[in-house]
């Protein structure tokens, strides 16, 4: 959200115009909140439900927003919590071992060269094979147009940790892209 729009939201809140403030931020953050929820849940339908829940929480908490952090940091924090709650409900928060994750990435990369069974872009399927913290950092980095500082504030992590997760995540994705290309090349040679 651009600074002028954020100022307008604050002005409306200060004037007691809660619904008017909410109606301004809802379209501005709708897709961004959904993308963050998707990166955590990996499913569009579940992500939409979590995004709706996030906006209900935002609506309820809006009168208490004091502006200690930026509006976007505050909104993403609520959205992340709503998506993590949905993930717990989904019961798929079981953590994969590192070996399993690498195997999943390799399998996805290989599958990318084979017949497609779903319509998600390859890179999103590779992303979902990454550990949850790397996924969230990568998602916020791309949603928030490359701001390490904003990502660190939203996730309440040191800047160095965010950069480390970012590098590991990007490296894994690049390796998956390379693996996918090699698999495609090998497939073409075979046929």
């Amino acid at each position: 959200m651009d600074p002028a729009a954020e100022r307008e939201v604050r002005t409306r809140l200060a004037a007691g115009l809660r619904l008017e403030a909410f109606e301004l931020l809802l379209p501005a953050f709708r897709d961004k909140v959904l993308r963050l929820a998707w990166s955590i849940l990996g499913d569009h339908s579940l992500a939409e439900d979590a995004a709706q829940e996030a906006f209900i929480r935002i609506w309820k908490a809006l009168p208490g927003f004091r502006g200690a952090s930026s509006l976007s940091t505050w909104i993403y924090s609520i959205a992340r919590n709503a998506a993590l709650t949905a993930l717990q409900r989904k019961g798929s928060s079981s953590l994969l071992s590192l070996a399993d994750r690498n195997a999943a990435i390799a399998a996805d990369a290989h599958a990318a060269g084979q017949e497609r069974t779903d319509h998600s872009p390859d890179v999103l399927r590779f992303l979902l094979a990454l550990p949850q913290n790397q996924r969230q950092v990568l998602a916020l980095y791309y949603i928030e147009e490359r701001s390490y500082e904003e990502v660190a504030r939203i996730l309440d992590m040191p800047l160095g940790t965010v950069k480390t997760y970012m590098h590991r995540g990007r490296k894994a994705l690049a390796e998956a892209v390379l693996e996918s290309r090699r698999a495609e090349l090998a497939e073409r040679r075979r046929s």
Binding site: L26, D31, E48, A51, Q52
Partner: peptide, 29 residues
Amino acid sequence: ALRTADAELEQAFAGIAARPGFEAAVLRR
């Protein structure tokens, strides 16, 4: 490969959008 991953991820995220009626559903709730 790094550049490809960056570009594809950015593009893929941009493709994730709420279905029509999302805002109306939130406001109704």
